[in-house]
């Protein structure tokens, strides 16, 4: 991954960490679902692809994704210059980074507690 990409991912991460709450559910499996659900839908929105809204869970991911995609478009002008493939790559990088920060690299000892 080049430095520009890395830097852009960090900008996206920064926004999520500062403004969002969905990435900080209390257990690893929930965080995995949340990251997957919200970021996938955000990617679809940014790529103008259809978004699945079948279930209440889908809708819940989607509302967070809409707000995130809007904020990204508003804040990061460089997004407009990217094509779909680039956005997908970027969002994949973001997803990996988020998984690292909130799950695999997290120092939160309660993430693996089996009960709520």
């Amino acid at each position: 991954m080049d430095d520009l990409m890395k830097d852009r991912i960090e900008q996206l991460v920064d926004y999520i960490m500062k403004k969002c709450l969905w990435q900080f559910h209390s257990r690893a499996w929930d965080r995995k679902d949340q990251n997957e659900g919200v970021l996938t839908k955000t990617m679809q929105l940014l790529c103008a692809e259809p978004v699945e809204l079948e279930t209440p869970a889908d809708r819940c991911f989607w509302v967070d994704a809409v707000c995130l995609a809007e904020a990204y478009k508003k804040r990061y002008a460089w997004l407009a210059a990217m094509n779909k493939e680039e956005i997908k790559l970027l969002m994949q990088g973001l997803h990996e980074r988020m998984d690292h920060l909130t799950i695999t690299g997290s120092l939160n000892l309660e993430l693996t507690d089996r009960h709520y």
């Binding site: 960490m17 500062k18 709450l21 900080f24 209390s26 909130t102 997290s106 120092l107 939160n108 000892l109 309660e110």
Partner: peptide
């Protein structure tokens, strides 16, 4: 809990 600190510090 640590989760609160994750949010707060972020």
């Amino acid at each position: 809990h640590q989760g609160d600190m994750e949010k707060g510090i972020s």
